[in-house]
Amino acid sequence: MSASGADRSSLFGRLRDGLQRTRRQLGERLANVLGRRGDLDASALERLEEALLEADVGPTTAGRLVARARGRMDQDPALDLEAALEAAATELLASHRADLSPRGAKPWVAVVLGVNGCGKTTLVGKLAADCARHGLSTMLVAADTFRAAAAEQLMVWAERAGATVVRAREGGDPAAVVHDGLEASRARGLDVVWIDTAGRLHTKRNLMSELEKIVRVCGRSVPGAPHHTLLVLDATVGQNSLAQARTFAELVPITSIAINKLDGTARGGAVLAIADELGLPISVVGLGEGIDDWAAFDPEAFARGLF
């Protein structure tokens, strides 16, 4: 996972300094009596907790992770606090990993949703390109009929990806476009359909009902569809990600989460809270605007990136 070298290393450096200071102190005063895992230095603990907070993990989950890390240290005296924390985070994330490859249905239908500006269209373009590259005939459905020029943006991506696109005019009924797209994909015997929906804040009741309808329409056109509902989250967003995930999941079953914009310095720690509290799995991460700028979710690399 790419992250800014400079910034992370400075934080990394601070933590290392902190830990080294702790170790020195322990070495000087306590090591001979208690060994390395004697009482944890309060300031080191605070520093690590702050690192978690700075990664947007949030106070509740940060507290829980620290508690779990201490549990691990009790079991394994060789672990230091940072390694224990990283292991606790990795374990939490590894048990919440999902696969986003199309399989088991034709057409395989995925609905992509999320709040405004989280990067849905760009991610859909990248994922569609990957499908096309693997020889799957792919269609994009522009179900964002609200935002000006949203369909044009998707059309450019369709061209890059080598996928066909179905769109309606601006202001049209998104559910109708979805219906048309799915009928067309069946008639043409396509393999994969990605449905790009309009950005909507989870607090907008009307827009959320519209989303519910889109999902319903999928199932009516293609039995068993959607086969995947992908909730896109912006790593830059803080604690609101949890509220977003909770509200979207209450309305439509979320198959997995994509964490976008991890190419910046944001660490996206809010997904730990989401995994912990809601149990939603993570499938892919978005890493930029280029067609290949994404990767399957790697719990270990992500956990390492938190510190």
């Binding site: 907070l53 947007d56 912006d234 830059t236 803080g238 944001a266």
Partner: peptide
Amino acid sequence: VDGMTGQEAVRI
């Protein structure tokens, strides 16, 4: 800036 931005706000 997105009003939902988390800790990144400072760096941005």
